[in-house]
C-alpha cells in the first residue's frame, strides 16, 4: 500500500504539473461578434470569411490568444442575443455606436477603439435633397439605411428641436436608389436622404446624384466601435488595442483593414463619446 502510494503520488503530481502546464499553454479563447447597422450583407454567410481573416490575423500576432468568430449580424436584436449568450461568451465586438450607447451598462461594454472607414475620423451625416435644407426637416420623409436604430437617429444623428414634429424615417437598403427616386420625381419618393460621408463622396462622383443639394449636417459622431465585453480580454487588452490601432503597419494588416473597410482602429475620441452619452442620458 505504502509502495503503491509512493508510486501514485509522484504520478499524480506529475499529472497535475502537466495539466497545469498544458492549461497554461492552451491559448485563451476570445469570442468575436460584429454588428453592422444598416448593412444587409453583414451576415455570417456573406461576411464570415472576412471576419475569420481578421481573427486569424489576431491569433498570429497575439501569441496565446485564440480569437473565434461567433457571429456577424445586421439586426440589433440578433446582435444582442449573441452578446447575451453565456454559452458562447463574447470578449470583443465591433458594434454600431448606437448599440454601444444603448447597451453599454447592461452588457458592460468598454469602447477600446473606433473604426476609420474611408480613412475618416468620426462620422458626419448629411441631408441631401432636391432643395437645400439647412434646418431640421420637421415632419419630412427622410431615407436612411439605419431605421433599425431610431434612438441613434433621433438622439444623435438628427436631434429634433423641442416642440417640432419629428422626421419620418424611411428604410432604404440602397441610398443611391432613394436619391434617384428624388431625382426621377417618383411618387412616394422621400424628401431627403441621410447619407454618411463615404456615401456622400460616392454621390459627388455620380452625374445624376451630384445634382442634389447638400443641407443640414450632423455633428461629428463616433463610427463603429470596437468594444470589450465585461473585461473579458483581461491582460490581453493593451496588446489587442495596440495591434488593431496599427493595423495598417504591415501588408497583411492593410489587407485585413481593407476588407473590414477600416484601415485601422485607433482609440476612440473620448470627448465625442461623452457628448453622445450625454444626449442618450438626457433621453
Amino acid at each position: 500500500m505504502t509502495h503503491l502510494f509512493r508510486v501514485i503520488s509522484p504520478a499524480i503530481c506529475l499529472a497535475l504539473l502537466l495539466g497545469a502546464a498544458s492549461a497554461q499553454d492552451k491559448p485563451k479563447e476570445f469570442g468575436l461578434v460584429v454588428y453592422k447597422l444598416g448593412e444587409r450583407y453583414a451576415t455570417d454567410d456573406k461576411a464570415g470569411a472576412t471576419l475569420d481573416g481578421f481573427t486569424d490575423y489576431l491569433d498570429k500576432r497575439m501569441p496565446g490568444s485564440d480569437f473565434t468568430r461567433i457571429g456577424v449580424r445586421n439586426k440589433p436584436e440578433d446582435a444582442l442575443s449573441l452578446l447575451k449568450d453565456d454559452k458562447k461568451p463574447v470578449a470583443v465586438a465591433i458594434v454600431s455606436p448606437g448599440f454601444y450607447f444603448k447597451h453599454k451598462a447592461d452588457l458592460k461594454l468598454t469602447a477600446l477603439a473606433e473604426a476609420t472607414r474611408g480613412g475618416k475620423d468620426g462620422e458626419q451625416y448629411t441631408l441631401v435633397g432636391a432643395t437645400e435644407m439647412k434646418e431640421y426637416p420637421a415632419g419630412k420623409k427622410v431615407a436612411t439605411s439605419m431605421s433599425a436604430d431610431l434612438d441613434w437617429l433621433n438622439k444623435a444623428v438628427l436631434r429634433a428641436p423641442a416642440g417640432v414634429k419629428p422626421v419620418e424615417w424611411v428604410q432604404y437598403d440602397n441610398l443611391s436608389d432613394a436619391a434617384y427616386e428624388i431625382i426621377d420625381e417618383e411618387d412616394g419618393a422621400p424628401d431627403f436622404v441621410l447619407v454618411d460621408s463615404v456615401t456622400l463622396d460616392v454621390f459627388a462622383k455620380d452625374d445624376d446624384l451630384k445634382t442634389l443639394k447638400k443641407g443640414l449636417q450632423s455633428e461629428r459622431l463616433p463610427q463603429d466601435l470596437v468594444v470589450e465585453v465585461d473585461g473579458r480580454l483581461g491582460d490581453k487588452r493593451e496588446e489587442f488595442k495596440k495591434l488593431i490601432g496599427a493595423l495598417d503597419d504591415n501588408e497583411e494588416g492593410k489587407k485585413v483593414g481593407e476588407n473590414l473597410q477600416s484601415p485601422k482602429f485607433p482609440a476612440p475620441d473620448p470627448k465625442r463619446l461623452e457628448k453622445v452619452q450625454q444626449w442618450y442620458d438626457a433621453g
Partner: peptide, 13 residues
C-alpha cells in the same frame, strides 16, 4: 451588388 458606399449597386441604374 450592394449600393454605395460598399459597391455600385442600384436597382434603378
Amino acid at each position: 451588388a450592394p449600393g454605395p458606399p460598399v459597391s455600385i449597386g442600384s436597382l434603378r441604374n
